[in-house]
Design a protein around this nucleic acid. Structure first.
Length: 297
DNA sequence: AGTGGGACCTGTCCGC
DNA sequence: TGCGGACAGGTCCCAC
């Protein structure tokens, strides 16, 4: 599912329950997700307290008072839901049918919170492309998943100048460059398509076009940086995009998908004012790109 | 350097 | 109704 806005939505949903909670028990229902769980996974968490929940790129990070960090990635179809204590499952909690199949409940964190015992945080992932790992806090930055991660698009580093510097001289298409987590970490297929459309840039243009010969940012570089930021912020405000699997942790749907200008709109009219084009789909590095050939020339 | 393919999985949808 | 194929928000690895 989840690109940065969806992961951020999940983080905000989990934080009130997870932060400060004592992990009373960990139910691990299979030996692996995409990768095997680390040795002693449940034991290393049991009886420990979660001190903080954060996000880096598309990763959720839970700081544990043992100085470990619980790393969680949702892959394509991972989701979390919270079930309250004694009152058995609130009606309407699973607004989305997909992630209520208990067959795919792979991890259950049983918690004791300030509200008392009984709250559960449940990780469900039909496709099992997600994964979890446990590393000590000081080792996190050197961890293979994080070592080569690029900049946070919502942080201060993202600017036209930065894009120009990162992409200068590169022939790979803009679409591929923006999807590459080594440059910018957190963008995925949807938001890359949307950002390119909003900026009027072709997904097939070489990434190096964002830099002039002297290495300064081209005109559109600043605009692209601003649009990336704006789209992510709008999507977070909307609770993310719910296509198939993403729900907020209380089961309600994000609604940014209603704001898509190009994603999954093949054949429909371009929404650029005055543009008569229609949205086309092409495949780049094995993934669908949606764009308007008319105004993203 | 960059692309293309396949891999990992399950589920859904569409055309025949 | 059934079946096969295409496709899905991510990422890694390998061959060219």
């Amino acid at each position: 599912m989840p690109e940065l806005p969806e992961v951020e939505t999940v983080k905000r949903g989990l934080a009130p329950t997870f932060e400060g909670a004592l992990i009373a028990r960990v139910e691990q229902n299979r030996p692996d997700l995409r990768f095997p769980f680390p040795a002693g996974f449940a034991d290393r968490l049991t009886g420990k307290r979660v001190t903080a929940l954060s996000r880096r790129s598309k990763y959720l990070l839970a700081d544990i008072d043992s100085n470990d960090v619980l790393i969680m990635h949702l892959g394509m179809s991972g989701s979390f839901r919270i079930e309250a204590g004694l009152a058995e499952d609130l009606p309407g909690q699973f607004a989305h049918p997909r992630n209520k199949d208990p067959k795919h409940d792979h991890v259950v964190f049983h918690l004791e919170t300030t509200a008392g015992p009984g709250a559960r945080i449940i990780y469900n992932d039909p496709r099992r492309f997600g994964f979890m790992d446990l590393v000590s806090r000081p080792e996190l930055a050197a961890h293979p998943y994080f070592r080569e991660l690029g900049l946070e698009p919502l942080g201060n580093e993202l600017s036209g100048a930065t894009l120009a510097r990162l992409f200068a001289g590169r022939k790979m298409p803009l679409k591929a460059a923006l999807l590459n987590q080594k440059f910018i970490a957190g963008l995925g297929n949807i938001y890359v398509c949307e950002a390119l459309w909003r900026t009027g840039l072709s997904p097939q243009s070489p990434a190096g076009m964002l830099a002039t010969k002297s290495g300064r940012p081209a005109k559109k570089a600043d605009l692209l940086a601003a649009n990336i930021r704006a789209i992510l912020e709008e999507a977070i405000k909307a609770g993310g995009s719910s296509l198939k699997d993403h729900t907020q942790t209380d089961g309600t749907l994000g609604y940014f998908q209603h704001s898509f200008a190009v994603y999954d709109r093949e054949g429909e009219a371009c929404r650029t004012p005055g543009c008569a084009g229609s949205i086309a789909r092409l495949v780049q590095s094995g993934r669908s790109t949606f764009y308007c050939p008319s105004c993203q020339a």
